[in-house]
Amino acid sequence: MSTDHPTLRISDAERETVAVRIRDAAAEGRLTLEEADERQQAVYAARTAADLEPLTADLPAPPAPVPSRRAALTPEARRRLLVHAGIGAAFALLFLIRWVVGPVPFFWPAGPLFWIAASVVAHYLWTTRRRQPSAPGTTASR
């Protein structure tokens, strides 16, 4: 919610953000149920940012979101992971068909299937934990 222009009309999403903040404050015991109910009614009746300001002025600021340590997959990395998973699935299907039509009574594909799955999971984890290349003109430590 922007306080730069307190007379601008607010959106439903901004109202909902403040309503969630009030619900959280009530759940933490910072507001009584009656206070929370009154403020909730005022939130949904609010039309401008100035109407919302006093409803949360005495509440602590919401905690900052924790940044994710995982990097988003680039389209190229996603393609490589899908190729890896596809090849692994093809081999898994081949092993299962071979086991079904073969004479061996025990489930021998369990070992290869485990390692195929482990390799796909390791590939995903390795790809998402890698540091992204830095912007041009800066140095990055690896």
Rank of each mutant, 00 (worst) to 15 (best):
residue 109 P to C: 07
residue 50 A to G: 12
residue 70 R to S: 09
residue 125 L to N: 10
residue 104 V to M: 07
residue 22 I to P: 03
residue 134 S to I: 09
residue 97 I to Y: 09
residue 54 P to Q: 11
residue 69 R to F: 12
residue 135 A to N: 07
residue 23 R to T: 12
residue 27 A to G: 14
residue 70 R to A: 13
residue 63 P to Q: 03
residue 98 R to S: 14
residue 138 T to W: 05
residue 90 A to G: 15
residue 123 H to A: 15
residue 21 R to Q: 15
residue 82 L to T: 04
residue 121 V to S: 02
residue 22 I to N: 02
residue 68 S to R: 14
residue 122 A to P: 02
residue 57 A to C: 02
residue 36 A to M: 03
residue 101 V to M: 09
residue 109 P to Y: 07
residue 105 P to C: 03
residue 81 L to C: 06
residue 68 S to I: 05
residue 52 L to D: 10
residue 20 V to E: 11
residue 98 R to W: 11
residue 59 L to D: 01
residue 133 P to M: 00
residue 108 W to Q: 08
residue 63 P to A: 13
residue 66 V to N: 01
residue 42 A to L: 11
residue 49 A to G: 13
residue 16 E to F: 02
residue 40 Q to G: 01
residue 90 A to Q: 01
residue 80 R to S: 08
residue 88 G to S: 15
residue 44 Y to D: 03
residue 55 L to K: 08
residue 122 A to Y: 13
residue 81 L to R: 04
residue 50 A to S: 12
residue 104 V to C: 01
residue 98 R to M: 11
residue 25 A to M: 05
residue 112 P to F: 06
residue 10 I to Q: 01
residue 104 V to I: 14
residue 115 W to M: 12
residue 50 A to V: 02
residue 41 Q to T: 11
residue 59 L to A: 00
residue 62 P to V: 07
residue 128 T to H: 03
residue 64 A to F: 05
residue 5 H to A: 08
residue 56 T to P: 04
residue 22 I to S: 02
residue 55 L to M: 05
residue 134 S to K: 09
residue 141 S to I: 08
residue 109 P to V: 09
residue 7 T to W: 03
residue 110 A to P: 08
residue 39 R to G: 06
residue 4 D to E: 12
residue 63 P to G: 05
residue 76 E to K: 12
residue 81 L to I: 13
residue 25 A to Y: 09
residue 19 A to I: 04
residue 133 P to T: 00
residue 34 E to M: 04
residue 14 E to I: 00
residue 109 P to A: 07
residue 111 G to T: 13
residue 47 R to Q: 14
residue 105 P to G: 07
residue 2 S to I: 01
residue 35 E to Q: 15
residue 77 A to M: 08
residue 6 P to D: 02
residue 27 A to F: 07
residue 54 P to F: 10
residue 108 W to A: 09
residue 11 S to K: 09
residue 41 Q to G: 08
residue 61 A to L: 12
residue 132 Q to M: 14
